[in-house]
């Protein structure tokens, strides 16, 4: 079953590098590590009028983390902060079995629990960034 972990859809999503890079003047930045493997993602957000006007991520990680980071950029960028705030819980729910079209290409990861942290890492970084933003008021 794990074979499908590396199907073409996931590889293509990782290679799309959607949102890869850094922002020149982010409103908020969060860095998140996976202590298991030392993978690291840095997420920059530009926030304007309650919306994420721009997002970039610098990802040092496996294909699954890279694919997930691309999805993060796809879904959080351009949306409002409140909707982005729900993504962390949404990917968790998806991994546990709830259908969610946005994450459909990650379906094979459901059967590889040791790799769940790989795909949640970018969304955790987003959640950390949003929490920081909220703290600042």
């Amino acid at each position: 079953m794990n074979d499908a972990l590396y199907d073409q859809a996931i590889i293509a999503e990782a290679r799309s590098r959607t949102g890869a890079g850094r922002l020149d003047a982010p409103t908020v930045t969060a860095e998140c590590d996976n202590p298991l493997c030392g993978d690291r993602i840095t997420v920059d957000l530009a926030v304007q009028d309650g919306a994420i006007s721009d997002l970039a991520h610098k990802t040092r990680g496996c294909l699954l983390t890279q694919a997930s980071a691309s999805l993060l950029a796809r879904y959080a960028k351009g949306g409002d902060v409140a909707a982005a705030g729900e993504l962390r819980a949404a990917i968790d729910a998806f991994l546990k079995g709830q259908e969610d079209e946005r994450f459909a290409i990650l379906t094979p990861v459901r059967n590889a629990k040791s790799r769940w942290d790989c795909v949640t890492l970018p969304f955790q970084a987003l959640a950390d960034a949003l929490a920081d933003l909220e703290k600042r008021g």
Binding site: N2, Y6, C37, D39, G61, C62, L63, L64, A112, C118
Partner: peptide
């Protein structure tokens, strides 16, 4: 990535 190698 090392984990991609190991998984495959």
């Amino acid at each position: 990535h090392a984990h991609d190698v190991c998984q495959l």
